[in-house]
Design a protein around this nucleic acid. Structure first.
Lengths: 326, 326
DNA sequence: TTGTAAGCGTTATCAC
DNA sequence: GTGATAACGCTTACAA
């Protein structure tokens, strides 16, 4: 592989001049420039980015730590983030943590090793004490002290869902989510506010005895059977809000198998936007998270870190997207 | 950030000795080692990987170029590859090409810039002429000259599906896939062999007039409406093989809406393994691609490249996984 | 307008 | 056992 030296030699100039040409910096006589450009072409020279990054002390790589990129919403978010960061010259390194803290720590350490310039952290683990707050970390849907975060308006999502179901005349409500978002969890994630916003709004409207289902968190994989078992005794609910579209989809089936019609007898609202389930039977009515807007906020924060501009945490609004289930 | 020099100074030794300690290479007196280890800890020194990579001329990063990580099978493959490569110390850089050749080329160029050590290429684009065959490229499900590839046994998958449907007594067959895998496509991908294997096997058994549906390729997003329109006149088929589980899922719904019972009146076989659709109504009978096995082959090839061991292309066997649709 | 040389933080070769 | 020192390939003062 040709280096900048080879180019300089072939063009009969110094390496500094070559550097000026390939970076388009400083003055270079047109004639010299042409000689150098020819040499670059002849040798098919490509600057070694590792060497460049070494002097520049950066590398434009961002690690995205998430539980599992095959989870539908996380996958969409990953997609949006990669696309957005690409526009700004960043590349995304993927870390599927499978919720394992050890793997998360490996990627977090890459910040110290300079393997990545920043990390986007999406986790339910208790990594607070491992975070070096002086490094560029962005948390999604989770608060850590002195770490800027981006979150959807989860509380607002719960409010939206409650108001919508109330407006449709529902009387008996249920929330379904995993226990990491539950009222018994020691880690209070932003996601847990979906439940809180939902329940508080209902109570403000005089509805009580809201059924709160918590299933164990495990790799974000929920089987229909598990949920069925948890809800089978609640035949009288008529307004259900779930933590994700995937769960909503299962619930719709479960209640239809129980002889209920959705949305006539039971209304179901999911979370994430219903996009991923467009072709799978009923379109889920859902609280829509705008992954593109989130990606933009994240990108802005990464750029801010680089420019030494202080970051302030961001809440991204959600909307309700009407489907066939509520 | 502390450097190796700071550590050396604090420990009162030379930087070479520090390097020996942190890399566990060469002899170091226990006493010296301890002094250095203390200094490392006191300064919380982390070796700068960029600098290390600079001298070592590598960086353990692999780019994975694929159309869209939110596509269910690609997402699963991405997950498996990331997990497998992680075990071997590699990190995965994600490129969602959205089938755009320009973006693919950007990532392909990273090989020349040394930003990545290898690239895994999954594309339907005509990038043959852009590939530098002297660089570590691994193609998935696609042949390029002088580029090793890993592919599922797509032909075998078609054969399996045909034989299975025949054994179940089907008489009138249909294949559905996008036109990139079609008989009119200029690019012959490995995936197209699903169709070929299916049709050839049926013909060998004396079945002819196999209905071949080709829908336009577009970002791997297929709407149920589009497919419905293409198949609505074929009410008499009783054995359908589709290019993916997603399409199979739509087909099941379409035929049930047409008043057919699946699998009693029509049997449907999908492709990819049926995993992603477990909870969404009927479990799809499917040709299963083993993403873990594929990931292992890919990882082996990447390691081989590093060790200068020549790579030979690999076909990974598929199996049929029985569900509720055939 | 251009070239020399220092520096980025490592690893590895060689003397000592 | 250990420590200078020369790479690695680039950018950027600074001098010319």
């Amino acid at each position: 592989m040709a280096t900048i030296k080879d180019v300089a030699k072939l063009a009969g100039v110094g390496i500094a001049t070559v550097s000026r040409v390939i970076n388009n910096s400083g003055y270079v006589k047109t004639e010299t420039r042409e000689k150098i450009e020819k040499a670059v072409k002849d040798l098919s020279f490509k600057p070694n980015e590792i060497a460049r990054n070494m002097t520049l002390q950066k590398n434009d790589i961002v690690a995205f730590i998430l539980p599992n990129s095959t989870h539908l919403f996380f996958g969409e978010l990953l997609y949006s983030v990669e696309e957005e960061l690409f526009k700004y010259g960043y590349k995304v390194m993927l870390c599927n943590s499978s919720e394992k803290i050890e793997k998360e720590l490996v990627y977090l350490n890459m910040l110290r090793n300079k393997i990545v310039d920043a990390v986007i952290l999406l986790t339910n683990n208790d990594v607070e004490s491992y975070l070096d707050k002086s490094l560029p970390i962005i948390s999604f849907d989770r608060r850590f002290t002195n770490v800027p975060f981006v979150a959807s308006d989860n509380y607002g999502g719960g409010v939206l869902a409650a108001n919508y179901l109330i407006s449709k005349g529902c009387k008996k409500f249920m929330f379904i989510g995993d226990d990491a978002q539950g009222i018994h969890s020691h880690v209070m994630t932003e996601v847990s506010k979906r439940r809180v916003g939902f329940i508080e709004t209902l109570e403000q409207h005089g509805f009580h005895d809201i059924i709160n289902i918590e299933y164990p968190l495990g790799d974000y994989v929920v089987t229909k059977e598990m949920i069925k078992d948890l809800v089978k005794d609640y035949r009288d609910v008529d307004g259900i809000f779930t933590v994700s579209d995937a769960v909503a989809h299962s619930i719709v089936q479960i209640y239809e198998e129980m002889g209920k019609n959705v949305p006539n007898n039971v209304k179901v609202i999911g979370y994430d936007g219903g996009r991923s389930f467009l072709n799978f039977g009923k379109k889920i009515t859902s609280i829509n998270q705008d992954t593109n807007a989130i990606a933009i906020k994240i990108r802005q924060m990464i750029v801010n870190y680089r420019m030494q501009i202080p970051n302030v945490s961001q809440i991204v609004p959600v909307t309700i997207s009407k489907g066939d289930t509520a």
